[in-house]
Write a protein that binds this DNA or RNA. Structure first.
Lengths: 251, 251
DNA sequence: TGCCAGCTTCCATCATGCGGAAAAAGAAAT
DNA sequence: ATTTCTTTTTCCGCATGATGGAAGCTGGCA
C-alpha cells in the first residue's frame, strides 16, 4: 500500500482513466512506456489496461505501436455536451429574460470555445449563436473568459499555437496585448468582447468554474447599440448570480 | 464466473465502460438500479464503479440521484475528433486531387453530422466546409449516408425527433420519402445531395464503417455546374477506394 | 406517522488484477 | 548479415483489491 491514501475508488478504473487523460495530453500519440513514465505504473499493468481500452475503441493503436484516443469517445463527448446544454437552459433563459439580450454557454473543446447552450434575447434584432458552433478563443468573449480561467502558461501556449487573424478593427492580435487583457479579466472577474469577432456585437462573458468539470464560460451578447455601459454594468452581477445557479444545477 | 467466457480484459474497466455506454444510451439520466438491470451486475458493484466515474467527472449525479454523462468526456471527445481528422487527411487529399472537388469526412455526433476533416478541391470556386461544423442529417449527403448506415428503426427515431425544415426546393421533408431515400442509398451504396441544403451544391457521399468505431461518412462535393453525372460516376469508385484506405488508416 | 423502494455501507471471501522477471519482437548500430 | 540495445508482450505465483450478499439508511408517499 502506498504511504499516502489516494482518492478512493476502484483502482483499475482510476488507472484506466489516468491512461485516457495521459493519451489526451499527449495529443498525437503516446507509447506504452511513456504512459508508464507519466503515471508511475509498471509496464505490464499499463499494457493490460491499454489492451482493454483499445479493445473497446477508447484508445486506438497506431501503426508505430503508439496509442491515441479512440473514436468511441466521440459520441460520448457529444452526449455529454448535449446534456450540459439541457441542464443549463433554465439558467440561460432567466439571464436572457432579465437583461433582454441573448445568453450563451460555451465549453473549452480542444483549443476553441464550443457553444453548448443558448437562450435568445427578447428583441427581433439579436445575436444568434448556433449550439455546436466552435469559435476561436482569442477574439470572443467566452473564449477570453475561458483563457483567463486557464493558467497563464497554458493560455500562452494555446495562443502561440493559434493563428491570430484580424477579424475586425478591434481584434487583438498581439500576444502581449492578449496576455494583458487576460490579466485584466482575471482582476475584473469578467471579459468584454468589443466587436472583436464581428462588427457591432458587444458581449460580456464570465468564466464558470465547477470543480471537477471542464472549464466553461457564460456570456450575454447583443448589438452594440443596445449593449450600453449601463446594460453591461447590470449584466455583471446578473452573470455572477447565473454562474452560481449554474454551478448548483450542474453539480 | 459466468458460464460463457466474455471478451478478455480488465474486468472492472470493462464494467466501467459498460456503465458509461449505458448512461450514453439512456441519454437524459439513468438510476443505479437501471444500470444494474441493463448490465446484469449487482447493485453494490455498480455503485462503486459509478462513484469512481463520478469522482473523476466522467459521470454526473443529478439532484434526483440519477446519473448522466459527465463533462470530463467533452475534451476527450474533442481530442479524439481532432486525431481522427489528422489520420484521415492524406486519404481526403488524394480523393480531392483525383476528382478536383472538395472531399469531406464527417462523424455522427449526437443527431447531427460533424465534419472532422476536409481537403479542398483544386478550383477557386469550390465548396468550403469548416472542420467542427455540424449539419443536419436529413438534408446533407454525409448525413443521409450516416442515416443509411444506422438501422432503419434508429434512423426513423432520429428523423421523428428532428425538425425537417425546407432549406431549398429539393430538400426532402417527408418522413416516408426520406426512408425511401435511405433504402435507395443502402441499395446503391452511396448517397447524393442534390442541393438539398444549399442551392447549386451537389454531393456524393458514402458511409464508412470500421468495426468498433463510430459511424462515419466520406463525401465529395462541388458546384452543380461541375458535378456532372460523368463526374459523380467517377466519384463512386474513387469513394469506394478511399473508404478502404480510410478503414486501413484508422484501424 | 409508518411503510416501502431504492440507495448506501459493511465486511468476510476469494477471484482478480498485480507486477517482477523473462521471452519476444523491433530498431539501431556495427 | 550479425550483434546489441530498446521496447513491447507474455507468464505466473502472490496477496491485494474488487466482489456481492446482507444489513442499515434515506427520502418519497400515503
Amino acid at each position: 500500500m502506498p504511504v499516502e491514501q489516494r482518492a478512493a475508488g476502484v483502482q483499475s478504473v482510476q488507472r484506466a482513466l489516468d491512461i485516457l487523460e495521459v493519451a489526451e495530453a499527449a495529443g498525437g500519440g503516446c507509447s506504452i512506456s511513456a504512459m508508464a513514465a507519466a503515471t508511475g505504473l509498471p509496464l505490464p499493468t499499463i499494457h493490460r489496461l491499454v489492451q482493454t481500452l483499445t479493445a473497446r475503441g477508447y484508445l486506438r493503436q497506431l501503426p508505430d505501436r503508439r496509442y491515441c484516443l479512440g473514436s468511441r469517445l466521440v459520441p460520448l463527448g457529444a452526449g455529454a455536451n448535449a446534456l450540459l446544454g439541457e441542464r443549463a437552459a433554465p439558467v440561460l433563459r432567466e439571464l436572457a429574460d432579465g437583461l433582454g439580450e441573448s445568453a450563451n454557454l460555451a465549453v473549452l473543446a480542444g483549443e476553441r470555445a464550443e457553444y453548448v447552450a443558448q437562450a435568445p434575447g427578447v428583441y427581433s434584432m439579436r445575436t444568434f449563436t448556433e449550439v455546436g458552433r466552435r469559435v476561436p478563443l482569442y477574439c470572443t468573449g467566452v473564449g477570453k473568459a475561458l483563457l483567463s480561467a486557464l493558467g497563464d502558461d497554458e493560455a500562452r501556449a494555446i495562443l502561440r499555437r493559434s493563428t491570430l487573424s484580424t477579424h475586425t478593427a478591434t481584434t487583438i492580435v498581439e500576444l502581449d496585448a492578449l496576455l494583458d487583457e487576460l490579466a485584466a479579466i482575471r482582476a475584473r472577474g469578467y471579459a468584454f468582447d468589443e466587436g472583436e469577432m464581428e462588427v457591432g456585437v458587444r458581449c460580456v462573458a464570465m468564466p464558470v468554474s465547477v470543480p471537477g468539470m471542464a472549464p466553461m464560460a457564460l456570456s450575454v451578447s447583443g448589438p452594440a447599440v443596445r449593449m450600453s455601459d449601463d446594460l453591461t454594468g447590470r449584466a455583471a452581477p446578473a452573470l455572477v448570480r447565473a454562474c452560481a445557479a449554474l454551478a448548483t444545477a450542474l453539480t
